[in-house]
Deep mutational scan, measured.
Amino acid sequence: SFQYVPVQLQGGAPWGFTLKGGLEHCEPLTVSKIEDGGKAALSQKMRTGDELVNINGTPLYGSRQEALILIKGSFRILKLIVRRRN
């Protein structure tokens, strides 16, 4: 089963996490790295392996390109929903 975790990061880029996968690579869009001391790490809500399913209220369909555009369009606040295996 899965758990959906809301994450809100503040203060602008860099957000402190790296993505891998996506439709382009025929795999889920997941968090591959969280930078020590970065905003994602400080939130204590994101983990490597989390799947990104929503950015700023926009549902994602797995495209890494789409996710990067939405993330780049976030100035002060980035709201994410990640899906994690229980």
Rank of each mutant, 00 (worst) to 15 (best):
W15F: 07
S43I: 00
G49N: 02
G49Y: 07
G38D: 01
T58C: 09
R85M: 11
K39D: 00
K33T: 13
N86P: 13
I71Q: 01
N56K: 01
T58W: 07
I69R: 15
T48P: 14
T18K: 12
R85H: 08
Q3W: 09
I77L: 12
A67R: 02
A41M: 10
R64F: 11
I69P: 08
K33Y: 10
R83S: 04
R64D: 03
W15I: 11
I34A: 02
R47T: 09
E51T: 06
R64L: 14
Q44I: 00
P6D: 15
I69G: 15
G12T: 04
K79R: 13
K20V: 11
L60F: 06
L19D: 00
T48F: 10
S32Q: 11
Q8N: 12
E24F: 00
L23S: 15
P14S: 03
E51F: 00
R47V: 09
L52W: 01
P14T: 01
Q44V: 06
S43W: 02
L29G: 01
K39G: 03
A67G: 04
K45D: 09
S63T: 10
F2K: 03
N86A: 09
K79G: 05
E27R: 10
V7R: 05
K33L: 10
A13T: 07
I34V: 10
I34S: 02
S74R: 06
S43L: 04
T48M: 11
G11K: 00
R84P: 05
V5Y: 11
K20F: 07
K33A: 11
L9P: 06
V5M: 07
I71A: 03
G37E: 08
A41T: 05
G11T: 04
K79V: 06
S63D: 13
K45M: 12
Q3T: 13
T48C: 14
P6H: 15
E51P: 05
R47Q: 13
A40P: 00
G37T: 07
Q65F: 06
A41P: 04
S74Q: 08
P6G: 10
I77N: 13
L70Q: 11
G73A: 12
Y4N: 06
E27L: 12
E27P: 05
G12C: 04
D36H: 11
I77C: 13
E35F: 14
R83M: 04
K33G: 12
C26H: 15
G21A: 03
T48S: 10
P59F: 08
E24G: 09
Y4H: 07
D36M: 12
I81Q: 06
A40W: 02
P6R: 14
R84D: 01
F75D: 13
G49W: 04
C26Y: 13
L80V: 09
R76A: 10
Q3P: 05
E51V: 05
D36C: 10
Q65Y: 09
F17S: 05
W15H: 07
S74A: 10
Q65W: 06
L9N: 04
Y4R: 01
D50V: 01
L70F: 06
V7N: 04
E27A: 13
P59L: 06
Q44H: 11
F17I: 00
G21Y: 01
R85S: 12
R64Y: 11
G21L: 02
Q65A: 12
G21I: 00
K39R: 09
L29Q: 01
K20P: 04
I77F: 10
F75Q: 15
V31R: 03
G49M: 01
Q65E: 14
F75E: 15
V82S: 03
L68F: 09
K45R: 11
G73M: 10
F2C: 06
I69V: 13
R76P: 12
K33Q: 14
G57V: 06
K39H: 07
K39A: 10
L60V: 13
K79I: 03
L78W: 04
I69W: 10
I55S: 04
P6K: 15
E24K: 09
L52R: 03
G16Y: 00
Y61F: 11
A13M: 08
M46W: 04
E24R: 07
E66V: 07
K20G: 14
K39L: 09
S43Y: 05
T30Q: 09
L42A: 13
S74L: 04
Q10D: 14
R84Q: 05
Q10G: 10
H25Y: 13
L68H: 14
Q3D: 14
Q65P: 06
Y4K: 06
V82A: 05
V7K: 07
K39P: 14
K20N: 11
V5A: 06
G37A: 08
T30L: 11
F17D: 07
P28V: 00
K72Y: 08
K33S: 14
K33H: 14
E66F: 07
F2V: 03
T30D: 01
K33N: 14
G22I: 00
G73E: 12
T30W: 05
L52I: 14
S43H: 06
I81A: 05
G22W: 03
W15V: 04
L60Q: 05
R64E: 08
A40V: 03
H25L: 11
K45T: 10
D36Y: 11
I34Q: 05
C26M: 10
I34L: 10
T18D: 15
D50M: 02
L52E: 04
I77R: 11
A67I: 03
L68R: 12
V7T: 00
G57A: 02
G37M: 07
K72W: 06
S63Y: 12
K39W: 06
P6F: 11
P14F: 06
I34F: 02
N56P: 00
N56F: 07
A40T: 05
L52Y: 02
G16W: 05
K72H: 11
L78R: 01
T58P: 00
G62S: 06
K72T: 11
I55P: 06
G21C: 02
G21M: 05
L68S: 14
N56A: 06
E35D: 12
P6N: 15
E27N: 06
R85C: 09
A13P: 10
L68P: 02
H25E: 15
L19Q: 01
I69T: 14
R47S: 09
L9E: 00
A13D: 07
G12A: 02
V31C: 05
G38Y: 00
V5F: 13
Q44T: 11
I77M: 13
S1G: 12
L23G: 13
N86T: 13
T48D: 14
R76I: 02
L19R: 02
Y61H: 15
P28N: 08
G21P: 03
E66N: 11
E24T: 08
F75Y: 13
R47P: 06
S63E: 07
P14I: 01
H25K: 13
L9I: 01
L42N: 11
M46V: 08
K20T: 12
L60P: 07
L70W: 05
G22R: 01
S32Y: 08
F75K: 15
G11A: 00
V31T: 02
G57D: 12
E27H: 08
C26Q: 14
V31G: 04
L78A: 01
A67P: 00
K39I: 11
G21N: 06
V5L: 10
K20C: 13
V82K: 00
S1C: 13
V82E: 05
F75P: 15
K20Q: 14
G12E: 06
E24I: 02
